[in-house]
Amino acid sequence: MQTTHATGQDTRKRPEPKSEKYSALVWRRFKRNRMALVALWLMAMLVTLAIFASFFSPHNPQERNSKDIYLPPQSLQFSDDNGFSLRPFVHPVIVDFDPVTFQPLYKEDTSQRVYLKFFEQGWEYSILGIDVSTHLFVGENGEGVHLLGTDGWGRDVLSRIFHGTGITLFLAFVVMIICVTIGSFVGIASGYYGGRTDLWVQRVVELMLAFPELPLFLSVIAILPKTSSSESTLILFILLLGGLKWAQLAREIRGKSLALRNVDFVKSAVAVGATDNRIIVHHILPNVMSHVIVRATSMVPQMILIESFLSFLGVGIQPPLVSLGLMLNAAKDFQVLGSYPWLLSPVVFILIAVLVFNAAGDGLRDAIDPYSKQ
């Protein structure tokens, strides 16, 4: 029964508003940014494509075919002169030669159709140690379908881009994890302890920031034995990038740690006898984590561009592994590029990956920043 005072006011206890968790608040602010939300979905699609690259690839990326060298992209169609079709198809490409210059001439045979079959059996691959052969789409009756053409060895460009995206993103994420781990630890230790520790640590950081990277990569690739595997080169490449790129983050975290060690709650923890490890883990680290997360999202596109640049120069990922930058290495010849422009297709995927991660990082930064106006 409702109880009231003599004045007639309602004395029932009103429920206290529920406090919103910090992660929920960040997510709510992040969702307001439409561009960042779209970028997050595209990022998830890129990661899915990278993980299940073999499923999405209609051809084995390492399979060479001397009959399909430098085939142009085939257009996906639903209708032609023979009528409309509910099933997508492509026309097979006929290769002829100019009788004077002997340059190859390509044209589609519009009298034939190669239908796409979805979730069909194709070349065999392995996922988590399980051998499977199901693919998203393949050509009917084993016919080749090259939506982005082929390269100089007759390998399908689209399938190589899918696998190259996986290698490039794998390298970027692993290097980012190494940089974030080392940079956060070194930055917090330098800023919190100060004194001689800060002095010597910052000299090491300055040395890493001043170290010339490109000559190091060139020299390392030069001294590697010819018999070394491409996997060992990838591991070495990851370690070199991770060992050089943590310094900038360490300097940023050091500045924040210097300010945090003088705030009241840290001084109170010191006054009650809390250990340095407890103060760092429970007070310093949580307050710099938002900056670390934002820097991590911006570091991934930076690593993608670095890998693409170095692999384009031939000092990054080595065959038989494939990356987006290594694929661009085949298009560095102006004569080849002028005749076969579809070899530049990896550039589109590099741009998409960089823009997506940058947009998501900007949205995350605005969502974490308490002074951001949204």
Rank of each mutant, 00 (worst) to 15 (best):
G8A: 09
R365L: 05
E140Y: 07
Y106S: 06
G187D: 13
L218S: 03
F84P: 00
P92N: 07
I304S: 01
Q103H: 12
L344M: 09
T3H: 13
K67I: 08
S308A: 15
M45A: 11
T233R: 15
S257D: 08
G242A: 09
M303L: 09
V270I: 13
P17E: 15
G194K: 06
I306M: 13
I306R: 06
K245I: 03
F89P: 02
I161Q: 01
D109Q: 03
E63N: 05
R261W: 10
I51Y: 13
Q318P: 04
V180I: 08
K226P: 08
P88T: 01
G149R: 05
S66C: 00
Q2M: 11
L158S: 02
W123H: 08
A353F: 07
I238M: 12
G338L: 10
T48W: 11
C179N: 15
L258T: 01
F170N: 05
F118G: 00
K21F: 08
S66D: 12
V114D: 08
V93G: 01
F55W: 10
V95E: 14
W123M: 03
L25M: 11
V132G: 00
Q2Y: 04
I253Y: 05
S19C: 01
Q62E: 14
S79E: 15
D198G: 08
F211Q: 07
D156T: 07
L241M: 14
F237T: 06
G139D: 10
R203N: 07
G191C: 04
V348P: 03
G154A: 08
R295N: 12
E120N: 13
K13V: 14
D10A: 08
L136F: 15
L344Q: 04
I350T: 04
L128G: 03
V38L: 15
H163D: 05
F309M: 07
R34A: 05
T165R: 02
G83T: 07
Y340V: 07
G325T: 02
D151P: 07
T11L: 15
L86Y: 10
G338P: 05
T227M: 12
F30E: 07
L148R: 03
A359F: 03
W246H: 07
E213N: 13
R64F: 07
I127K: 06
S372M: 08
A50C: 09
R261K: 15
H163W: 13
D333F: 11
I223A: 12
N82G: 04
